[in-house]
Design a binder for these strands. Sequence first.
DNA 1: TCTGGGGTCCTAGGACCC
DNA 2: TCTGGGGTCCTAGGACCC
Length: 359
Amino acid sequence: MSGDDRRWVLHVDLDQFIAAVEVLRRPELAGRPVIVGGRGDPTERAVVSTASYEAREFGVGSGMPLRIAARKVPDAVILPVDHEAYNAASAEVMSTLRAQPGAVVQVLGWDEAFIGITTDDPEAYARRAQAAVLDRTALHCSVGIGDTLVRAKVATAFGKPRGVFRLTADNWFDVMGAKPTIELWGVGSKISKRLAGLGILTVAELASADEGAMTAEFGPRMGLWYAQLGRGDGASVVDDTPWVPRGHGRETTFQQNIVERAEIEAVAQDLLAQVLGDVAKEGRPVVGLGLKVRYAPFFTKTFTKKIASTFDRDVVLAKTMELVAKIEPDRPIRLLGVRAEMAMPDDAREGHSPTRSGW
DNA sequence: TCTGGGGTCCTAGGACCC
DNA sequence: TCTGGGGTCCTAGGACCC
């Protein structure tokens, strides 16, 4: 250990993770445009989960309707989503990261994680982590290095693919200051438009935005949060406290819109049974229910209901059907979703497990 | 061109109580 | 009569992320 040891946040992000996992088990696909989404049938209602870099050249990206993606890349290989395969690959990646010396690992999703470390050479540490992941899983990743979680997360994009990039208070404004606000993590199309309405177009402008104007527009919490985001400031401690899920939900989009009451009720019961299966694994009681309805062509409505804490399936079913009864009759729906909120254990009170507002 | 599925967190506004 | 004030809980919806 030298006197230059400092705490760093690393953000590790696998490159085209889902497509890469598919290519690994089907090596003949290497170099071809691969698109993974839905059940792999581009005539169905579904969207792209991940496209390989070869497919991205044609303008295909995550979230795009599969139908459109197939049209853009006529000779693409289109594959169904295989959760089990990605779970297994993800578990190997995360265990490799946890095995790095001194690493505190906070998993963000299938294909990304923060690592908290103390070192005098974060780039060297990042390169060793990349090599370890490649050696163990044959998957490539990019690493962002930062002095806060936000800066590390944003840095990763500049390291892609297979690279390393460092973003700290020293170079944040040089790198990000002139960029549009939508490039920040947590600012999407809606918020960036509202910011533009306040005359805030760039990250630098957001960083120095008037606090009063921000809280007036977005509320006391989010207003200050967005301004902080513009500065890249915020938490710098990686938290490896195990995640405690707040609830579980299932939803399904119908290939043809449905309207029959009996059919809607049957689907709701089926979704609820799946949800309760997931909930049962947690061994925690249900304290709330939610029903999501997307009326055709595209208008979403949600109904929620708090209930007395219960494990009783009949009670939960009856309460769910009360929500189903609120669905407008004779109006075609394209999506139905059911969600159950669970009681939080005492040791996972607010502030204990990580939350976005803590970043 | 037509928009999945699984999540989290925040806010506005109404209901209700004292 | 132009109709308090504060607090809490609940519902619905918005926004974002992977």
